[in-house]
Computed example of a mutant assay.
Amino acid sequence: MAEPVTTLRDASQSAFAALPANAQRSALDIEYRWLNAHLADAPLAVFLHEGLGSVAMWKDWPQTLCERLAMRGLVYSRPGYGRSTPRPRDVKLPVDFMSVQARDVLPALLDALDVNAAERKRMWVIGHSDGGSITLLYAAAFPDALAGAVVIAPHVFVEDISVDSIAEAKTAYEQADLRSKLARHHDDVDSAFYGWNDIWLSNAFRSWQIIDELDCIRCPLLAVQGNDDHYGTMAQIDTIAQRAAQTQLTKLDHCGHSPHRDAPHVLNDAIAAFVGKHTRSALS
């Protein structure tokens, strides 16, 4: 059962870590929603959205998966997205913006929502696309602060196919109907779109990679990708498996960049089997 969407006033201001040190910082509103909050003793699944995502853009998939897993859930919109505080127009995301989200923003949000250390040890983090990369970075930075991770179409380095598709998205946003579609899900749609699009298309970002960080991940890790993904190739999750030997790969036929939309039943089966296996082994 999904709780109403709520906003959290983040007095720590950590989510604007990307702002210059001399910039004026104000408190942030973070949009979030609890799922199955009545399951007080159940493990928590935290969902990290894609580069243009939000609480609303997940639709009902997190709820469906939480019911399948008998878990509580937490979905939230990162600063700049959904109903959370927009990115200031004069602030560009830094090359390490995903590291900032993993290292600073997610831990601060969990602190503000009173998710304690014991709950975090049982927590699963599930991320899609940029959210998948943030999931990997969180698992690397806090190896004892989660039970396991699921990454769906993550990025660990920049490929030409990603840049080409993101450039096409800019054309669709400025010349077609992508802006009007996204505007339904973001209070400041330009903040959401250009924050993501500008950094991914910048020359500085072409050398971004998080391959070395993968060596630090110790938790069970499921990496999922569709064979028809136009934002990345199988080299992304193959690289993860090469550096984190405990990784299980799931490669989906007839599936694009968003398996939770293109193949939700197959994806849910894969996640449920993986989580169930590692939950049983943890109890044995």
Rank of each mutant, 00 (worst) to 15 (best):
E168I: 02
I166L: 07
D164E: 14
Q175Y: 06
A140H: 09
A147F: 09
A145C: 13
I134K: 08
A176L: 12
I152M: 04
R179I: 01
L136P: 01
A169Q: 11
K181Q: 15
A139E: 05
A176Q: 14
A140L: 02
F142T: 04
L137G: 07
H155P: 02
A147Q: 13
I161N: 02
G148M: 05
F142H: 11
A139G: 08
E168S: 10
L146F: 01
Y173V: 00
I152C: 03
A176W: 11
E159M: 03
V151I: 10
H155A: 03
Y138I: 06
I161L: 08
H155K: 03
S133D: 00
D177N: 14
E159F: 00
Q175F: 04
S133G: 10
F142S: 10
I166H: 06
I134L: 05
L178S: 03
A167F: 09
G148E: 03
G148P: 01
A169I: 04
A176F: 10
G148D: 03
A172L: 12
D164A: 14
I134W: 05
V158W: 05
D164Q: 15
E168V: 06
A139W: 00
V151L: 09
Y138K: 04
I134Y: 01
H155E: 07
F142M: 12
E174N: 11
A176T: 13
I166Y: 02
D160W: 11
L136R: 11
A141I: 02
T171W: 10
K170C: 12
S180L: 11
E168A: 15
I152G: 07
F157V: 07
A176M: 12
G148F: 00
Q175H: 07
D160R: 13
A147C: 08
S165H: 11
V158D: 04
A167D: 14
K170D: 13
V163T: 11
V163A: 02
V163G: 05
V158F: 04
A176K: 15
S162Y: 14
V150K: 01
Y138P: 09
I166N: 05
P143A: 07
E174Q: 15
A149T: 05
V156E: 00
A145Q: 14
V158P: 00
F142E: 08
T171R: 15
A153W: 02
D177Q: 14
S165I: 08
